[in-house]
Structure formats: structure tokens, C-alpha cells
């Protein structure tokens, strides 16, 4: 029962993060909201794994945490340097 309550709270948190993603004036709000959404998805999958009694969900949530982090860093590099950079070329942040 308590897993269900925690899952509901996480779903509400994800909804609020989505609202911030839609409302966010700057692109950094959106990246922040999507990053928070991804972290909450990790928690949601782990909770659902416990709720349905299937321990293999935890591997999925671990992989999702890894991918979420890499995605956020890639988006931020794209924003800061304008492109994801070519090998061996020194990129300057756009003014």
C-alpha cells in the first residue's frame, strides 16, 4: 500500500516537472525540468518493480539513470558550444 502512495507522489512530482518544462521561459528551465523528470522516472520504475514484485525492473531503472545523465550533458553541451564538436577541433562557447 505504501508503495502505491509513494508512486502517486512521484507521479505528481513528474506532473509538476512537466508543467515547469512547458512553462519554463528559458531553455535551461526546460533542461532542468526534463532532468528532474528523468530522475523521477528512475524512482518510478524502481517503485513499480517493488509494487509488482519483479526485481528485474531495477536493472532498467539503473540503465535509465545512466542514459538520463548522458542525455542531459549532451543537451547542455549542444546549448553551450552550439554543436557537439568534431574530433580534434577546439570549440569556443558562442557569445
Amino acid at each position: 500500500m505504501m508503495f502505491f502512495a509513494a508512486t502517486l507522489a512521484i507521479l505528481v512530482t513528474m506532473g509538476l516537472a512537466l508543467i515547469r518544462a512547458l512553462m519554463g521561459p528559458t531553455v535551461y528551465d526546460r533542461v532542468l525540468a526534463v532532468n528532474t523528470f528523468g530522475t523521477k522516472t528512475v524512482l518510478l520504475i524502481a517503485l513499480l518493480g517493488f509494487l509488482t514484485g519483479r526485481p528485474d525492473f531495477l536493472d532498467i531503472s539503473l540503465v535509465y539513470a545512466l542514459i538520463n545523465f548522458i542525455g542531459t550533458i549532451a543537451v547542455l553541451k549542444l546549448i553551450k558550444y552550439g554543436d557537439l564538436g568534431t574530433i580534434g577541433q577546439e570549440t569556443e562557447p558562442k557569445p
Binding site: 533542461v31 530522475t39 542531459t72 550533458i73 547542455l76 546549448i79 562557447p93
Partner: peptide
């Protein structure tokens, strides 16, 4: 199960400050 959860926790505790720092750095440098 606990080992996997500990791995997730440690990974989250390392990467969320890093991504927040990268976000602040990108925002401030722009």
C-alpha cells in the same frame, strides 16, 4: 535487490550535482 538499489543511489548522488553544475555553467556562460 539491495545491491542494485545501492548502485542506483550512489550513481544518482554523483550525477545529479554534476548535471546541475553543468546546467549552471551553461546558463551563466551564455
Amino acid at each position: 535487490v539491495t545491491v542494485k538499489l545501492a548502485a542506483i543511489l550512489i550513481f544518482l548522488l554523483y550525477t545529479s550535482p554534476t548535471s546541475t553544475y553543468a546546467l549552471a555553467n551553461a546558463a551563466y556562460s551564455r
